[in-house]
Amino acid sequence: MGGPVSRPLSRLVSDGRLLAGALRDPASVAALDGDGWTALLAMARAEQLIGTLAKRLSGQPMPQAAARVLADAAASIAQNRRQALWEAEMARRALAATGVPVVLLKGTAFLAGGLRAGEGRSCGDLDILVPRDALPQVEEALLAAGWSWLKPDPYDDAYYRRWMHELPPLIHRERDRMIDVHHTILPLTARPSPDAEGLLADSVALPDGLRMLSPADMLVHAAAHLFADGDLAGGLRNLWDVHCLVHQFGTDGLAERACRHGLQREVDRALRLAGALYGGEGRSLRGADRLYLRRLLARDGWGRETRPLTRLGFYVRSHWLRMPPLMLARHLWTKWRRP
């Protein structure tokens, strides 16, 4: 990939490269005019990276109007962080008496661990990992502490419990925040089967008694989420997480760990794409990488998704990855017949 600044601005504002370039090289924003800034801010909002951008661009010269938008975003993210950490604390209190180890995942872990990947990161639901055999206790304790099922439906419930890597989503009645309780990091229907016991055994204790995954496992989880479980929506943010984790912890022992979880291909791809987008170790793109980049960067200067066919392709792929064809057909049939 060429540097973002070498491309004509008019083309740049219609592709996510503008955003990736600003995160990769903050000084590059000096070349932006009013329209360029407008496009950059719209893309960053759409990709939920505006808080990250605010952090990354702090200290760069910029138009006052842009600085104001980013200052608002920074304040908003600070409040988001407070809420996310409070929600983790609420879960800790609810589950303390069970004695079950509770591992924070994704954004909340980055925030609680004070990691670089957490700087400016927005954080929605609370994701936790617990041992599979402790699920009944955890479920009971959360229900007793004010969480309830988001959309009680017998088919969904049975499907989640039999095939998914998490319980059906729970929402807290008063705080209106969701919690996803995982027992592993990929659906049981997916082809790779990560070593869930290994994830728990290697997890790292945080000062308050909660835990987070080991750095290598955090990287494996980010890659699994991105390439083995979804349609790559929000992928620019996931790859920024990957970029930050690699920058902070390096990649020693990562290949071995990825291998153990059966996710080496996914981890390698995450490293190559994160490198291509955000810089770092030079790894040349391979195979379908360029197609992935095309999907990841499908965002225009109005914040709209572009390239509908590419996106559709990845959407179909995501379902294909999640379950075998016959099962997928049965699943879609049941979902379709329901009112």
């Binding site: 407008t38 138009p63 914040g303 709209r304």
Partner: peptide, 12 residues
Amino acid sequence: APDDGVPDFTVR
């Protein structure tokens, strides 16, 4: 017009 040509919000 918006200050500096950079609006706070985009509407579609």
